[in-house]
Simulated scan of single mutants.
Amino acid sequence: MQQVLATENRIAKLFQFSERKVRDYFKAARISPGKYDLLQVIEIFVEKNLGKDETAELKRADKDLKEYKLQILKKEYHHESDVVRIVSNMNYNFKSKLMAIPSKISVQLLNKNNQLEIEDILKKAVINVLEELVDYKYEESEFGEDEDTGETYNKID
């Protein structure tokens, strides 16, 4: 096979290395001072960098996992089942409040003929329910549910 020669300067530009790093990194491919066998340089580069991307990706994933676990311990993240339970509870309470508006307001609207007055009463009732939604605080019960089995257990024990 024919040798393809490349200068130290050309290899440095190709791999974005300093010329000093080229000398250290590709010693085995050096033919003469400042001249290197380009095919051998490429083989050395591939051999030395094979698997580095996968290793770096695994390290990054491991680091991310540790950060997420720490955030979970700090209560910055919550399990999906907890979020679903809280949102479902909030929606149920909100729906109940909305469904109660007609029975609460109907008495106030009995003798009203003025459309603006009726709208004002209805608007105040809806705003009241929406404000309760904004100020919603989930009160966790003393019972929990095991994620794996679905069985209910007492959290206090």
Rank of each mutant, 00 (worst) to 15 (best):
V83L: 14
I44E: 11
I72V: 12
K35S: 07
D53L: 15
L50Q: 12
K104E: 12
K66A: 10
A29K: 01
I42E: 13
I31R: 00
L50H: 08
E57K: 12
L65Q: 06
S88D: 09
V41K: 03
V87Y: 02
E57W: 01
K97N: 13
K75H: 10
D37R: 08
L73R: 08
I72D: 04
E47C: 05
S81F: 02
G34N: 04
L38C: 06
L73E: 07
R60Q: 07
I86Q: 05
I44Y: 03
E57Y: 04
P33R: 13
I31Y: 03
K66W: 00
V87H: 01
E67K: 10
V87N: 01
N93E: 14
I42F: 11
K35L: 15
A56N: 08
M90D: 03
R60P: 01
D62R: 09
K74T: 03
L50W: 00
E47K: 15
N89Y: 13
I42H: 06
K74V: 00
I105Q: 02
K74M: 11
F45V: 01
P102C: 08
Q71T: 01
P102E: 08
Q40A: 10
K95V: 11
V87I: 15
P33L: 06
S103C: 10
N93Q: 14
Y36R: 09
R60V: 09
I44S: 06
D82W: 04
L73F: 05
D64F: 09
Y92S: 13
L58R: 11
V41G: 01
E76W: 03
D82K: 06
S103N: 14
S32T: 12
R30F: 01
I86N: 01
P102W: 12
K69E: 03
L70S: 06
T55F: 05
K95F: 09
K63F: 11
S103R: 14
K69L: 15
M99K: 13
S32L: 09
V83R: 09
N91M: 13
K63H: 05
L65W: 06
R60S: 07
A100H: 08
L65C: 00
Q71G: 04
Y36V: 08
F94G: 12
R60E: 08
S81D: 04
D37Y: 02
A56F: 00
D53G: 15
L73A: 08
L73P: 02
V83A: 11
I31M: 00
A56K: 00
Y77H: 08
R85T: 07
F45Q: 04
A100W: 07
K97E: 14
N91K: 14
H79T: 03
P102L: 11
I105E: 04
Y77D: 02
I72N: 10
D53T: 14
A28H: 03
E57Q: 10
N89T: 14
D64M: 13
I105L: 11
I101L: 09
E80I: 04
E80D: 04
P33I: 04
Y36E: 09
F45P: 02
L98R: 08
N49Y: 01
E76N: 12
I101K: 01
A100T: 07
V87D: 03
A61W: 00
Y68N: 07
E80M: 06
Y92F: 08
N91G: 06
K97M: 13
Y68L: 15
K74R: 15
D53I: 15
